[in-house]
């Protein structure tokens, strides 16, 4: 039987980096974004509904749970955050399961800029990253100068990763170039810190907007694109994640640049997290199945992952109190 398709050609081919184009005008940027295909909402939702029926069993489930733990950005973004609260969250990030040291540590802690120094103090030089939201999170309603200063302070305090928000007002009013310029400027201010660009998909509403904003962020230099702040009514959803994953896949094929995806807000159960991993697995594949390129922004998710992890190992559900609150 003729088999012209080889496994090597069936996956996603990522050429080694071509240079990203630089846009100096609104019209050039628009021309680039106009190339994007539309998204059919019914079809996209049907696709994730189908993927949600995948059944992960035995070793697959165990390794997926461990992978999910290692992808968590353990987050506290409250007005009531204190040094004590952040320190205790950092300890949890380093050693999620106090009774089982084989549980992997999470990917990062995510805090407000003024808490970065505290977090850095606890995290030290371990593999856990310190991420900080910046750029007038969550609304992004401040001047570029304020946003850059916000970013710079977080980086100077020791942040490895910056989670910026885009100017949704500018995006929705069609001022795409302003959004682009801000991303380029914040990326510059990040220096060696990784930049995650929050699209706040709940405010962009349509999948077409999500796709366009994803490309805009990637063209601006995002290392990650992130769904949500967690501060609006609609946060991460599976179809939005699908559309963003398709964007990073196509972007990698076009420019040779692998951009990560972070889903944030409302993901509370292992069952939900595994659904996202299935969508990653079957949309972009192995390259993205690492904390370097996929993250969960969450807080309560971690303990459910630990609960299910111990269930897989012992066969029994532990009491929730077996796991530390934070």
């Amino acid at each position: 039987m003729l088999r012209l398709v080889t496994p090597e050609s069936s996956g996603i081919q990522i050429p080694v980096r071509k240079n990203l184009p630089v846009f100096l005008t609104e019209s050039g940027l628009r021309t680039e974004l106009k190339k994007l295909s539309g998204v059919d909402a019914v079809g996209a939702e049907a696709r994730v509904a189908k993927l949600s029926t995948r059944s992960l069993k035995k070793e697959t489930k165990k390794s997926a749970i461990n992978l999910a733990i290692s992808m968590v950005d353990l987050t506290t973004l409250e007005g009531a955050d204190t040094a004590g609260r952040v320190s205790s969250l950092c300890s949890k990030a380093l050693r999620p399961d106090a009774n089982d040291l084989t549980a992997p540590s999470v990917a990062a802690v995510c805090v407000y800029p003024d808490m970065v120094a505290t977090a850095r103090g606890v995290i030290g030089t371990s593999s856990v990253q310190v991420a900080s939201v910046a750029t007038a999170f969550p609304s992004g309603r401040a001047s570029l100068a304020v946003k850059l200063l916000d970013t710079k302070e977080a980086v100077d305090a020791g942040a490895d990763e910056i989670d910026m928000v885009i100017d949704r007002g500018a995006f929705l009013s069609g001022n795409l170039f302003k959004v682009y310029e801000e991303i380029v400027a914040v990326k510059e201010a990040c220096g060696s810190a990784h930049l995650k660009v929050i699209l706040e998909t709940g405010e962009l509403v349509t999948y077409d907007n999500v796709r366009r904003a994803s490309w805009l962020a990637m063209l601006g230099g995002a290392d990650f694109i992130k769904t949500s702040t967690g501060k609006v009514g609609v946060n991460a959803t599976l179809p939005v994640a699908l559309v963003m994953l398709e964007a990073v896949r196509d972007f990698a094929e076009e420019y040779g640049e692998v951009v990560g995806v972070k889903v944030a807000g409302g993901i509370r159960t292992t069952k939900d997290a595994l659904k996202y991993l299935v969508v990653v697995n079957e949309t972009v594949g192995a390259t993205w199945l690492t904390p370097d390129y996929f993250r969960f922004g969450a807080s309560s998710l971690l303990n459910d992952l630990l609960l299910q992890r111990s269930k897989q190992q012992t066969g029994n559900y532990a009491r929730p109190d077996r796991f530390s609150g934070d």
Binding site: V16, S55, S63, A286, T287
Partner: peptide
């Protein structure tokens, strides 16, 4: 030169 991402990298039992 190219990097290759194998779809279905997570094998389902």
């Amino acid at each position: 030169e190219s990097l290759h991402s194998q779809l279905g990298g997570l094998q389902y039992d």
